[in-house]
Design a protein around this nucleic acid. Structure first.
Lengths: 252, 252
DNA sequence: TCATCTTGGTTAACGCCGTTAACGGTAAAC
DNA sequence: GTTTACCGTTAACGGCGTTAACCAAGATGA
């Protein structure tokens, strides 16, 4: 019995149904309707109880589509970043941040599903995947690349709050950390801090708890990003990255 | 006909009913039940349709209780701040921020109702009150007092993005701004930026999109606040305020 | 004082929702 | 070829927001 079985017919069909569930749910959201088991089922030509063969509850459905929406959105961030050279992670990060913000502003419902959805304590097989959220991984990876290139300072392990030290040594949070040396795990603290800053402005803007004119101008977001250039060792790059950021913000 | 009529009997009764609605809704929330027209009505000994004499829709009920929850929470912030001298607005701000965070962590459902609830475009008579949210007013006021005392720098009007300039000259956002000279309205930009930072960490922590150990340690929140001392002219006060912040965070 | 109108409540009903139970057909497994 | 597991169905329950029709009583004005 080989370690990697080829998926049986049933398994393939089941996987296809999961895909269709996500597709139907995404369509509902983009159409402005709200997400419900019954609506998803109806769109698939099924009855609502049938969905219980695939998800154990409504919340699990939400978690499933949230995970997939995050994955799809991250694909968009990757594309935005890929317009810059592979050896220019700073530019790529700026582009990805702007793409993240644009997504949050254009699809506030999807954004809040993924990022404002209160996190449950535990969950199903699929739910666990959420702790390794795609976008989280991508942003940590970009940050790591920037560090490799610019060698910005980060706290040593013994400078960290002991609890935080545990957290960076054995992270629960979405972060691509396995390949970071334990001694370098202070980097994750920088990641958490910058992620918190990015998450903050974008959530503020996406939920509209902010003067609409300020959102439209992008000034708050811009200022927040610019403030983070120096801590990431990008002070010397500031003029170039500012220009780049403004161009990215100006894109339709 | 005098400008200020004393309220008629009916008006008083109506106002009392509004209070009872808010009270019933708050009770439901603190009990962990979720907010619904029917549940609120039942708790008041009424039937659901009767509530439509007071709010036009479920969303309006939510907005109403959100406004009152914000008001009540702000009362808590004021109390936390009032343990420090009136001529020490920096200490008061620190205490208020910690109180704000504590409230967000202890009552995540209420917090998300007030601060993660997507803002509607327009609304009813009562809804308009939301643009002058109590907590927003209180925090701007504290910031203004700090400025009066420490005279930290703020951008001149012509340094601001023109759109932002409009926004600070004629603010839509909760802020106690009428008493701030137009030339000094750059202060509001500082307010927006620091509010964004505070809102960011606290929302991140309250929704749980963060390693639970980091939340428990308070390190992310602490670091965010400390970063904002310098821009507010409080660099010289940093040791004192750091100590104060740690004491406040340590309070049960 | 009596007729009128407004206010604040009722009951009944509609169409959604998540969820459960009982059942059946069909494809895989032995 | 029989058995079993999977995947769908229908029926039903209780709860939700919301509307319509109705009614009692308090305020209003001739």
């Amino acid at each position: 019995m080989p370690a990697l079985q080829q998926p049986t017919r049933r398994e393939r069909q089941r996987e296809a149904t999961y895909d269709e569930i996500v597709r139907a749910a995404s369509e509902l959201l983009t159409e402005g309707a709200d997400l419900s088991l019954r609506a998803v089922a109806a769109r698939m030509g099924m009855t609502a109880p049938a969905l219980y063969r695939y998800v154990a509850s409504y919340q699990e459905l939400v978690d499933l589509v949230a995970f997939e929406l995050d994955k799809a959105a991250t694909q968009g961030f990757v594309e935005a970043a890929s317009r810059y050279r592979e050896d220019d992670p700073a530019a790529r990060l700026c582009a990805a941040c702007v793409a993240f913000r644009r997504w949050a502003l254009n699809r506030p419902r999807e954004f809040s599903l993924v990022f404002a959805n209160p996190i449950g304590s535990e969950g199903s097989d699929r739910r666990e995947l959420l702790t390794l959220s795609t976008s989280g991984h991508y942003f940590t990876d970009l940050l790591y690349q920037i560090w490799e290139l610019y060698q910005f300072p980060y706290p040593a392990l013994d400078e960290l709050d002991p609890i935080v030290r545990d957290a960076v040594l054995n992270p629960l949070i979405p972060a691509k950390a396995e390949h970071i040396e334990p001694a370098d795990r202070g980097l994750l603290w920088i990641y958490m801090r910058s992620w918190s800053a990015l998450y903050g402005v974008v959530t503020l803007e996406s939920t509209g708890h902010c003067d609409p004119r300020v959102i439209e101008s992008g000034a708050l977001f811009r200022a927040t990003i610019l403030d983070w250039l120096a801590p990431l060792g990008l002070a010397a790059e500031a003029p170039r990255l500012t220009k780049l950021l403004d161009e990215e913000l100006a894109r339709t």
